[in-house]
Design a protein around this nucleic acid. Structure first.
Lengths: 152, 152
DNA sequence: ATAGGTGCAAATGGTTTGCGAAAAC
DNA sequence: GTTTTCGCAAACCATTTGCACCTAT
């Protein structure tokens, strides 16, 4: 019963957002804070880390609010979501193909990189499969120089 | 207390596996069944789907066994794990770069593809960052022809 | 006053773990 | 007989949701 009511509420809210093409709504202090933190970080943040950083400035903010706003930001295309290792991470939206990751399986170091080959690849895949690509996640894992040498 | 004991047990088991370079152990019927199902499927399976298919042949198999063996297979390099959308999926190990995915955000269709550009990209990244790449995940999302047209 | 947002606490759902029994070596 | 694996139930943990209150229109 309450279940139904909740679902309905959220469904209706989403429809409203869709139909009215709602613009960005940093109407609340919490929402603004969260978005600021994401932008300032620049790099990938998971929900917990975002919550931690936001809590420093507003100790009363709740984790539920973090998740709700992340979902909203995603829907509005303000942030993008990536799976990095096992965690979901978020970062402020940039151009298609700008956030690609190289992770050392041994020491955990994360290197962000970009390559013109990525654009070529997108073009090729779009053409061959008659697909319009809107998102790309490229994740490479391996061993950095240091860990490679230490392995011996 | 019980917690400590459990962790210790698993820690010791892992150390033993590491040190002795344990070979494949499809010693139990359940393990063999699970591996067979993965191989026969060929494509990506998540844990639930693997459990469902395995249950058809051995209705008494448990989900815990599925997860435990998936972990084991992963450790031994028999299967690889990917994040496809929100789910973790598994497939029998092939060559580096052979499993890349293109997913339609609207209808959910999954296309598996490969491109020589992927090898080029690996080579480039390895060289530029002095990294030894052991794993690559490439995930593209967008709209397939049908959904692209229906959008209008 | 009404819609949308929040904090809190509880629910959810995928994955992991403790444990006693069974199987493998 | 010792070690490994299993099934079951309980625990875990990231995420989501119901609800009552609040806050801006």
């Amino acid at each position: 019963m309450t279940r139904i009511k909740g679902l309905l509420y959220h469904y209706v809210r989403m429809r409203i957002n869709r139909n009215h093409e709602t613009k960005i709504h940093p109407s609340t202090p919490q929402r603004k804070l969260l978005f600021d933190v994401i932008q300032e970080a620049g790099k990938h943040l998971d929900a917990k880390e975002l919550y931690r950083r936001a809590s420093e400035r507003d100790p009363s903010i709740s984790l539920a609010t973090v998740y709700r706003n992340l979902r909203l930001f995603k829907e509005q295309g303000l942030v993008d979501e990536r799976h990095l290792g096992q965690a979901r991470c978020y970062y402020a939206m940039k151009q298609l193909g700008e956030h690609q990751y190289l992770v050392c399986a041994a020491c955990g170091k994360v290197i962000e990189f970009e390559s013109p080959l990525i654009r070529k690849l997108i073009a090729e895949v779009q053409h061959k499969n008659n697909f319009f690509v809107t998102k790309i996640e490229l994740y490479l894992e391996g061993h950095c120089r240091k860990c490679k040498e230490e392995k011996k």
